[in-house]
Design a binder for these strands. Sequence first.
RNA 1: CGCGGGGUGGAGCAGUCCGGUAGCUCGUUGGGCUCAUAACCCAAAGGUCGACAGUUCAAAUCUGUCCCCCGCAACCA
Length: 512
Amino acid sequence: MDKYYVTTAIDYVNALPHIGHAYEKIAADILARYYRLQGRDVFFLTGVDEHGSKVEKAARLAGMQPQQYCDLMSEKFQQAWAKLDLSYNYFIRTTDERHVTVVQKLFRQLKDNGDIYKGSYSGIYCEGCEDYLRERDLDADGNCPSHKQKPRQFTEENYFFCLSKYKDKLRQWLSSGDCVVQPESRRREVLKQLDDAELSDFSVSRSRSSLTWGIPVPDEPEQIIYVWIDALANYLTGVGYLTDPDCLSRYWPADLHLIGKDITKFHAIYWPAILMSAGLPLPKRIFGHGFITVEGQKISKTIGNVVDPICLVETYGADAVRFFLFSATPFDQDGDFSKQDFINKVNAELANNLGNLLNRTLTLVERYCGGKVPARAPENNLREASNEVSVVVDKHIESLEFAKAIEAIFALVDETNKYLNDEKPWALFKDNKTVEGETVLLTALEILRRVSLCLYPFTPQLASEIWYQLGYHTKIETLAHGDDFMWELIPAGQLIRNKGPIFKRIDSSCVD
RNA sequence: CGCGGGGUGGAGCAGUCCGGUAGCUCGUUGGGCUCAUAACCCAAAGGUCGACAGUUCAAAUCUGUCCCCCGCAACCA
């Protein structure tokens, strides 16, 4: 069976999840659900990054021990993801014991391979930020821009990864046209960064004096493994590297690393180099998606426009949030979340177009066909149109153009609403043209069946509800027969269940 | 000359690579229908496609110059 291993970035737990975090996880979930429905053997990994000085600092501010704080935050993330109906197979935490083992063994492996060497790292550290800065971050006076104080210069012994050794191989890989890094503009950017002299061997550990909350270098507790190896290795831990060889060989390499555009460099340069050194196959695809702004502004705690996904879901439902985020925004570019647009879009598409189509169709079936799916052949033109939609959706999902996939689905919904208006089945039945009327209704039902399948990855609850009202006793997510079920027909004689609106319109006056 | 994204009817966007009647959604106005969730369908109004210049029979689309907005430093995917 064709496997599909998709990962997301793991989020720092120094703050609560916001809509930007959710965006990427939902994208991964859409893919996971879509390919499961296609019958593929899917593994969807997400999780949190719990190490680092920022987390330690956040814990201290909260008056907790780091581990205690991480347990709490990790729980919060999982709660949020549950609310959003994320169907991940494993939630990784970098404090997991087995991850600690993986990171240490990986470190040792790279070192044994001669790719990690001891060097001296010099940097600058701002006491106010409690963080490392870069020279170019400083203001004109050489001060930290936030704290207006001179940062502390320091030099310490620590370990470096020999990136320079892999630059040629990386260049080759990135140029191989194997659609490795996407979007294309990001691939070119990364290729350019490879030629940058500033991109040299990078530090992979810190001394305990500057970083305590992390995984120690094996046999050298005074050195703590720095973020790159620790965080990136989660993709290996998640599928059982060193602990479950069967799982590893089943899923590795990843088919897709889904990441924010800001960390493309680490995934497209550092990570493959580490894998090369470890002698592991490289990921097939890395996609750096755009960010979500809120009401036209960057998500920022200072501005105070952080949107809490849990709150959003509790108010509007997971489907509405999932749907809006991916219908309104091209995935490779930045998109905006505006409450007014959100309500407009969701009401128009989910309630008015789709919900009402289902509702009017089922009411007609109840009234004129005794609530049973008529035994007729569907009309060919619309049936072909819906065949086409499946193909188009497949293509767009493959290229991660979610908005285009949704657009194609709703074009079919619109067409079907128009079809009912034109064919007027209620009039056909009144004129005793029963065969014609039944054909029209069967066609609409059949399209609704396909729409619910196509929509399932995006709006699982809504799709399941349509599936249920169409009279199925099976659960939509248990279907996994590859393509064939897509081309079947809704069974004649099946009793439909008209349970009223599947999506209640949001009252736009309740915008705060 | 630091890098990148963007400026298209009231709002949000597509189209720009591979020049050829400017398209979609929402909103507005008028009409239709009554199966349906004040829904659905039809029609109309509304744009010198940031500015200027150039290439061309023809430019939103190619070339050049310029203007404006937003990221790239911090909390932050």
